[in-house]
Amino acid sequence: MKLPAASLTIKITVLIVIVLIVGFGISTILTIQRESDLLVEQSKGAARRLTMTLIASIESAMLQERPDITRGLIQEMQSTTPVEGLTIYRHNGVEAFTDLETLKAVSKEAELPKGVAASIEKMARPAGAVMTGPLFKKAVDTLQTQESLEEQNGVLLFTLHQPIPNQERCQGCHGTDHKVRAVVRVQTSMAPVFAAVHAQRNRQIMVGIVTIIVAGGALALVMRSVVVRPIQSLALAAKRIGEGDFAVRVPADSGDEMAELGGALNDMTVRLATAKQDLETRNAELAS
């Protein structure tokens, strides 16, 4: 069974919708990608700023010979900052600011203010697992920040390893046999970021769908008025001319190609009417 041919209005509407889908689709994809990259970079930037703030606080407290303040600050930040992990490691991978090894080494070279050692001893705890990861080693070897995105327990984490150089002013307590005094390791979950990305993506898709529907409907109505109706008028006029009605005329005052076509059809109708009248006159003369 042959399906009925689709009307010109439907064909034009479908074409408009396809063009809008392609155009808005590409635009939406690019916008989503750009905003996703921006949100991810903002999250990474927050982790970098947190790390640099912590390093500045450590440097300040250590130069004032107050490592106890540094330990307290780190413990507080570990429990209050919205990050998944915040750990400082010595250049050999052992967790810093936990045991009393550094305190013992420093005490041999310098005398700490009264009460500092006692305060540090109260905060002492066993060190965590030794850090041996490739990014940690690379940070120690190159003195450059190392960053990565890695998944742990189904959660995507942004991990940053920021080395702290063993500056000359620090070597009196920390020795001169290593270039890196410590590495700050910060891990922050990217789940909230990607949740925001997905929400933004859904909003963009909804805006695109609504825009396509509204714009497609409006353009279809305009095309129906500007193109389809004039063509229908021409088709109806041509049908009446075929039936012998040479008095029919179509509007030809729009100033566009449809007007030219209408004018040509009107001229043809006039010539057909004249030819018919001449033929009838000759037939009448022959009959008489």
Rank of each mutant, 00 (worst) to 15 (best):
R203V: 14
G242R: 11
R185G: 05
S189E: 04
V106S: 00
A117T: 13
L86I: 02
L73S: 10
T81N: 12
V210K: 01
D177M: 09
R203Q: 11
R90Q: 13
A117G: 05
A237F: 08
V106A: 05
I74D: 00
L272T: 04
G115E: 00
R169F: 13
F158C: 06
F246V: 11
K104G: 01
T188A: 11
D253N: 10
I212K: 00
G216S: 03
K137A: 14
V17L: 12
R271I: 07
V210N: 04
L156Q: 15
L50F: 10
A195P: 07
V228I: 02
R249F: 01
T81D: 09
V186Y: 04
A124R: 13
E151M: 03
M268G: 10
I120H: 06
T28G: 02
E76P: 01
L286G: 09
I231Y: 09
E147Y: 14
R240T: 04
L112E: 00
S57P: 07
D245E: 11
S148A: 15
V22S: 03
I212D: 03
V228F: 06
V155M: 00
K114F: 15
A238F: 06
I212L: 04
K2Q: 13
G172V: 08
L160V: 11
V140F: 09
A264L: 13
H91A: 11
I18K: 01
L30H: 05
T31N: 11
T211A: 06
F136E: 06
V94A: 14
E257C: 04
G72I: 01
V222Y: 01
V197H: 06
G172S: 15
A275M: 14
A191S: 10
S189P: 05
S36Y: 07
T9M: 01
L156R: 15
Q144N: 10
